[in-house]
């Protein structure tokens, strides 16, 4: 069985169905990207996986254990294995960069403070923010905040990292610094599920790409298949349109 296995997953906002039978899997160390038009359910899928939104049907299995989203213990166990980086970074404004990165591993996961701090410094160094340990998020640019958010997620030592449009809120010149950081991670053999509109990045970094529309995975395949030889009309149409606008 895959590390993350999603079967027939459905979810709705009130009467609006946003996920309509998602089937998807991510293997250990695999990078899977979700692409598709706005409103196709990509970000909602990450919300459901992380338990921020309840599914109304289907099954999510993480590391062999089915996640019961109405059971606090089961949800906690699932959340222990994953980390998510949000589009708007969502750093804690009252904490320094270092504290943002260390607070969950030390206070929630009760890991050794000194070891966690050492790891946090190393991660922040790696994302190029080793000199910003003691500043507050509002003193950083969007790109820097997003890199702190990535370091924060990694310090949790997740088995799978979810990235939700991590560059959409950034100025164009900040996009590459964040994408370069993720490229480095992809080489680290960490499983990732990425929602992104950066098509060249997605093509470059993913093992597989899933094209989503109308709350379903319409097609899943290698980057070459999705971009060069799409099997469905919907995918062909989407890829054709985005290549015309120069992604």
């Amino acid at each position: 069985m895959s590390f993350l296995d999603i079967h027939d997953l459905g979810a709705r906002y009130g009467s609006l169905r946003v996920l309509d039978g998602i089937d998807l899997s991510v293997e250990q160390g695999e990078v899977v990207s979700l692409i598709g038009p706005s409103g196709s359910g990509k970000s909602t899928l990450l919300k459901v996986i992380t338990g921020l939104m309840k599914p109304d049907r289907g099954r999510v299995t993480l590391a062999g254990a089915a996640v019961d989203y109405s059971n606090r213990k089961s949800l906690k166990a699932a959340r222990d294995r994953l980390a998510i980086v949000f589009q708007q970074y969502n750093l804690f404004g009252n904490m320094t960069v270092l504290r943002n990165v260390t607070v969950a591993p030390t206070t929630i996961k009760k890991r050794n403070r000194r070891q966690v701090e050492e790891k946090a410094r190393e991660l922040l160094d790696r994302v190029g923010l080793g000199d910003k340990l003691h500043v507050y998020p509002d003193q950083l640019s969007g790109g820097q905040q997003q890199r702190v958010a990535i370091a924060r997620a990694l310090c949790l030592e997740p088995e799978i990292l979810l990235l939700d449009e991590v560059t959409s809120a950034l100025d164009p010149e900040r996009v590459s610094e964040v994408l370069d950081t993720i490229r480095l991670l992809a080489k680290d053999n960490i499983a990732m599920l990425i929602v992104s509109h950066e098509m060249s990045f997605v093509r470059d970094v993913s093992h597989r790409i899933a094209f989503m529309a109308d709350g379903r995975v319409q097609e899943i395949g290698s980057p070459e298949q999705i971009f060069d030889n799409p099997q469905t009309d919907r995918t062909r149409d989407f890829v054709g349109r985005i290549s015309r606008v120069g992604h």
Partner: peptide, 18 residues
């Protein structure tokens, strides 16, 4: 407080009191 910060805390397994 931005709800998104509370979501971040929830996903990192903060209890409501934490």
């Amino acid at each position: 407080l931005k709800p998104a910060q509370l979501e971040a805390a929830a996903v990192m397994n903060f209890t409501p009191l934490q």
